[in-house]
Write a protein that binds this DNA or RNA. Structure first.
Length: 286
DNA sequence: CCTATTTCCTGGTAGC
DNA sequence: TGCTACCAGGAAATAG
């Protein structure tokens, strides 16, 4: 499913095709998930940004209003250079080219809104700092983590940090040696998690994201990402943990498949002053 | 304010 | 082979 690395890869490939172009027409199949897209017609795109898992195309201001197009890829959404069986939206550009949005499961969502007005999208409205930017402050994260509810659910909310989904949450928690169901992290754990999030996302962006076995995600140029080959827990139930040799387990947490290593992601709260991460870090450096 | 549950949506696949 | 049942899950809506 597209998370920050997949959306960022999409953004980088889409930007040269879209920025500077004027949208002539947007066709879609009439579902409620593509709101007010007609307002984009006749407008020139000045930049393509990303916030968490959201793509945001900014339009050139006109005297009356400033608008932007928000695109969320959902579970299976992605851009292609040609139509396909699951093309849901077609964007016709002024140079005669077109962009095709395919989305087999229809969880993707588009909307044209006034710039910065995200009232209809509460998650975007309340989204946390970009994990790969200076805005992601380690001490602020650590402070919040002291009172965190179930850590996986907390991270998936997009509040403490933007852009994490089911895959990269599981991977980051494994790397930090923290059980997904833990609450109220100790400062040392939260610091490990902060670093793990940045490392996992950085490496995944460099890899062009993850393309899962169902091949639903591809880059706009049609190529697959390859970070799936570096997953340590996601979709690896029953396999050996690369760090300790334990067996990866899968449980359900917050309605989501959750993968972890019970050996090096212990559920017990660390005792005050102890270094619960010793095993995890040792495994990583040897 | 917060947490838990349900809904959306459809292709792929397990099981018979 | 062909059918049914179920699973995947981000975010919003709803309920408590």
């Amino acid at each position: 499913m597209p998370e920050l690395p997949e959306v960022e890869t999409t953004r980088r490939q889409l930007a040269p095709l879209l920025v500077g172009r004027t949208i002539v027409r947007i066709e879609h199949d009439g579902r409620h998930r593509y709101r007010d897209t007609h307002l984009a017609e006749g407008r020139r795109v000045t930049r393509l940004d990303r916030r968490g898992k959201y793509l945001i195309a900014q339009f050139e201001d006109d005297p009356h209003e400033s608008l932007e197009l928000i695109v969320h890829l959902g579970m299976t959404g992605g851009f292609r250079s040609a139509t396909g069986r699951h093309t849901r939206v077609t964007v016709h550009l002024d140079d005669g080219s077109a962009l095709y949005f395919q989305d087999s499961r229809r969880f993707g969502k588009w909307a044209v809104v006034r710039t910065g007005e995200y009232g209809s999208m509460p998650t975007l409205q309340n989204i946390g700092p970009e994990p790969l930017s200076e805005d992601f402050d380690e001490e602020a994260f650590v402070t919040q983590a002291l009172n965190a509810p179930v850590v996986k659910t907390w991270l998936l909310s997009q509040g403490p940090v933007a852009g994490l989904g089911n895959i990269y949450v599981d991977e980051a928690l494994w790397r930090a040696g923290i059980h997904p169901a833990r609450t109220r992290l100790a400062p040392e754990e939260a610091r490990r998690l902060y670093t793990a999030i940045r490392e996992v996302l950085t490496e995944a962006v460099e890899a062009g994201g993850s393309t899962l076995a169902d091949h639903t995600y591809a880059q706009p140029n049609g190529e697959s990402g390859w970070f799936q080959f570096r997953h340590n827990v996601y979709a690896r139930k029953g396999k050996a943990c690369a760090r300790c040799g334990g067996t990866i387990e899968k449980i359900v947490l917050g309605q989501r498949g959750t993968h972890f290593c019970p050996e090096c992601q212990p559920h017990a709260q660390p005792e005050p002053g102890s270094d619960a991460g010793a095993r995890a870090r040792k495994g990583r450096t040897t």
